[in-house]
């Protein structure tokens, strides 16, 4: 009887592991892509005003 159920348990755990691994991959690939894009812009000399020593604050900063 236990062997009959093994396929159900294994597929539940297997599908969950795959989906969560996929979620991890997507979250970290996206994070890396945005970090790279920001670095590429900064390498071209395009910086945020707050980091370029300007007087105005970063958009969205605290009131």
């Amino acid at each position: 009887m236990q062997a009959d159920y093994f396929a159900f348990v294994a597929s539940a755990y297997g599908i969950s592991a795959l989906a969560i691994a996929g979620l991890f991959a997507w979250v970290f690939v996206d994070a890396k892509a945005q970090r790279r894009a920001l670095q590429a812009l900064e390498a071209r000399g395009i910086r945020r005003r707050s980091e370029a020593g300007g007087s105005r604050d970063a958009p969205g900063a605290a009131r």
Binding site: L23, F24, V27, F28, D30, A31, Q34, R35, A37, L38, L41, R44, I46, R47, R48, P59
Partner: peptide
């Protein structure tokens, strides 16, 4: 995961803002 995704979203918005700045320049 939420923290990582939020950090990425902040960077995405910075990239978008800087890209617009670069285009204006």
């Amino acid at each position: 995961l939420h923290l990582t995704a939020m950090r990425t979203e902040i960077l995405r918005r910075r990239v978008a803002a800087l890209s617009r700045l670069a285009a204006r320049r």
